[in-house]
């Protein structure tokens, strides 16, 4: 009986771990997609950026949470710069926006390889672990889950309770009308892109202690984040969050049964099925059911 409880606990822990990863990896991408309808192919590079800034600051002696926040802010500022210089020219050409951010991603990755070299060791995971029976759980993983939930709650409050949120949602639903009412939609776009980039940076910072840092590390996040956005659809709260939960269960189950790689393949098979059944993802489906 206790063995079963521990086993269940271990599975729940796995699910929570994957859930946190998917929410953090995909949140920034989903926000940008939901608002502007474009996919930021340089998403992984903002994650990388957050991880490097965090690690550099922690090595310089700052506490980890400060490093993570600074990493997120730095990525956010870079995101706004990228939006102002390049991305904003492509809002009516979504496919070209994919191509151009892809080019930026290539430049950033290879440029970083030239400047930073191939790998940095991580600063190490804080907090340690607790044991239950034969299982032990790293406490830092629970912190990640808390951060992921915090991000979702924060986004809910931001979009539902603030003036920025009201303006942002109006812009999402009808940009021309929002503009005619005085909403500075271009600024909203820049801020949203910055927010998306900052969330990517946050993900990078949070995961930095657990990973070996390399300029190509962002690639390790993009498949999962793409999959989550495809399954979730255009809305973070009604799409990304439930999609992350469902995908987390599928991935944890596939991983437990057949190993890591099949966890990933399980995700892809799920995507193929979901796009066949719900082409607009969870949030599109929910929206149509409610309307």
């Amino acid at each position: 009986m206790t063995a079963f409880v521990y086993q269940f606990l271990a599975f729940a822990y796995q699910v929570a771990d994957v859930f946190a990863f998917l929410v953090l990896a995909a949140g920034g991408l989903a926000i940008i997609f939901g608002m502007m309808g474009i996919i930021n192919m340089a998403h992984g590079e903002f994650i990388t950026c957050g991880a490097y800034v965090t690690t550099a600051l922690v090595r310089a002696g700052l506490p980890l949470p400060v490093g993570i926040v600074m990493g997120a802010l730095f990525a956010g500022v870079l995101g706004i710069a990228l939006e102002r210089t390049i991305v904003r020219r492509f809002y009516n050409r979504p496919i070209d926006s994919l191509v151009v951010t892809w080019g930026v991603s290539l430049i950033a990755t290879q440029g970083a390889l030239l400047v930073l070299g191939s790998a940095w060791t991580s600063v190490g995971t804080p907090l340690g672990s607790i044991g239950f029976g034969d299982y032990s759980f790293a406490l830092y993983r629970l912190v990640m889950l808390a951060v992921a939930i915090g991000v979702l709650v924060g986004l809910y409050l931001l979009f539902m309770k603030t003036r920025f949120g009201v303006h942002a949602r109006a812009t999402m639903q009808n940009p021309a009308m929002a503009r005619a009412l005085g909403v500075p939609t271009e600024r909203i776009y820049a801020q949203t892109f910055g927010l998306g980039a900052a969330l990517a940076g946050l993900a990078g910072g949070v995961y930095a202690p657990t990973l070996t840092l390399s300029p190509t590390m962002g690639t390790g996040f993009v498949v999962e984040s793409f999959v989550t956005v495809v399954v979730g659809g255009a809305d973070v709260l009604t799409g990304t969050a439930p999609a992350s939960a469902v995908l987390a269960i599928i991935r944890a189950a596939c991983t437990a049964a057949w190993g890591q790689v099949f966890g990933l393949i399980g995700l892809l098979v799920t995507v193929c099925i979901v796009i066949r059944v719900l082409p607009e993802g969870f949030s599109g489906w929910l929206m149509r059911r409610r309307a």
Binding site: F33, G37, I38, I39, P94, I95, L98, T219, V222, V223, F226, V227, V229, V230, L264, I265, L267, L268, V271, C272, I275, R276, V277, P279
Partner: peptide
Amino acid sequence: GGINGVFVGIVTLSVTLA
């Protein structure tokens, strides 16, 4: 499945990377 242009890009890239 009727998915649109941008999604074709990210689904194909996901499959490739996986």
